[in-house]
Design a protein around this nucleic acid. Structure first.
Lengths: 254, 254
DNA sequence: CGATGCCTTGAGTGAATTCAACGCTTGTGG
DNA sequence: CCACAAGCGTTGAATTCACTCAAGGCATCG
């Protein structure tokens, strides 16, 4: 359905991996020359879609793995009656669709939150990655294990944190991740989400999410603005959530 | 603290990998001779703990990875005030502690639900696994991605399914997994959980969990018995949950 | 036979949901 | 240029859901 919105920009001018803007960011580890060479020919294209478009569809049998080159997206599942649960957000450098490739079919969908560009990798070359590039295979496992860790924390939030706590947690989490890839300067840039997105991530209704955000806003911890939010007091927000925060270093990508 | 209960049985008679009772179960893929040889020397011991004992502790820096050889356990996180969220259950064949090894420190704890025996693997040999045994490295990634998939479904349940739906889901999930490894014959064996475990998995209070189980019991879908539950009508239960069920084949292990 | 652990039940309270409406902004077509 | 619709945020009121509190029952175990 929304898939038709995709693709017009692909096939234009691709960013070569050796000039990948994500390399050099301190949030990521660097490649060796040999790794870089492999990754370069592992990448077979780019995919650009606009905000609101569906990048990957649940149930699909995809021959590709993706990495977010720029932009934001989110991963979600639907129940038959339309209830939606957002599992996690995809930031630049994040791997998308690994499950689909390893296990046949994808069990979730991915939608663009902003215009987004993804690097497309060939599934068929995955074997070579495992047989010839152990360090990259290790990275892949690391990434999967890391996603598991994030989901653990989300599960803890939804299952056991109060509405205010879990909202503070989610806002903190997204903010920290956005900062790590330079999407917010000193907290001075809104992250383009609707409250419906937050509600569907938090397992709360839209109305109650709105009222909960208000509580945080009344305490001057966050501000809703320009179709997104801004963190005013990162420490205070984190404290409310009772979360320790991200402890990342040398995150691998691709 | 509870760690002191661990270990007395280790160092006794270890099950050699070539006689591993898990091999040959149709739920798992088989090893090649070369893989088997590697796994055999990758394994450095066994760990047995009794019901209720803590196998792994959050925050710990563990030099080992484990596989469940027999018994049941569960993975959980705690908030500072004691609220507990159970993330998932570990069945025979399941890998435990991968995160801890890959990322330095463990972000969750693991407790035994029955007397449990785990195979202990050396972290230091993980490099060799990646460089020399691509097929096993692939399996490791597969396992991590699979866990991610399970957590996605749990997240969907806790976030968006009603109390009855999510309880039916969890009961179905555990039952299906137990069946896959032969822990319940034709549904005729109780799974040794307390309702508190279920509550902490579902994100519900103990009282409400009890009342929800009652609703399912009143419809003759399950029965609570002998400190555990029994599934009377697997199809009916699955239908209530609105879940598709596990679709597994050739699950790798270790 | 008095603990203790676990399940069960009822009553009262609090939290979160649904329903309903309104305001603001943006975009679109007449 | 205005009218109108659509999307999103906000708010209040009523209802439902889930939680806490409190107590009792029934096993098992020392």
């Amino acid at each position: 359905m929304t898939g038709s919105k995709a693709g017009p920009a692909s096939g234009k001018r691709h960013t070569p991996c050796d000039k990948c803007p994500l390399r050099g960011m301190k949030a990521f580890r660097d490649f060796s020359a040999r790794e870089l060479e492999f990754v370069s020919q592992f990448k077979v294209g780019e995919l650009s879609v606009e905000r609101g478009a569906t990048v990957l569809v649940e149930g699909t049998h995809s021959p590709h793995i993706y990495t977010v080159l720029s932009g934001l997206g989110f991963r979600y599942k639907l129940l038959s009656d339309g209830r939606r649960q957002i599992m996690n957000y995809a930031f630049p450098g994040d791997l998308v669709g690994l499950q689909g490739v390893l296990m046949g079919e994808l069990d979730h969908s991915v939608e663009a939150l902003t215009p987004i560009t993804l690097c497309v990798f060939e599934r068929s070359k995955l074997d070579r990655l495992f047989t010839r590039h152990a360090s990259l295979a290790y990275d892949l496992t690391w990434i999967a294990a890391h996603e598991e860790r994030v989901l653990d924390e989300h599960l803890l939030s939804i299952g056991r944190r109060s509405a205010v706590e879990r909202t503070a947690y989610l806002l903190s989490y997204i903010h920290q991740r956005a900062r790590a890839v330079g999407l917010v300067n000193a907290g001075r840039k809104a992250i383009p989400l609707t409250q419906q997105h937050l509600a569907d991530t938090l397992g709360l209704s839209l109305v109650h999410t709105n009222k909960t955000i208000r509580k945080l806003a009344d305490r001057n911890l966050v501000r809703w603005q320009d179709g997104g939010y801004e963190v005013l007091e990162a420490d205070g927000l984190l404290k409310v959530s009772g979360w320790e925060g991200l402890k990342e270093a040398g995150r691998p990508f691709v």
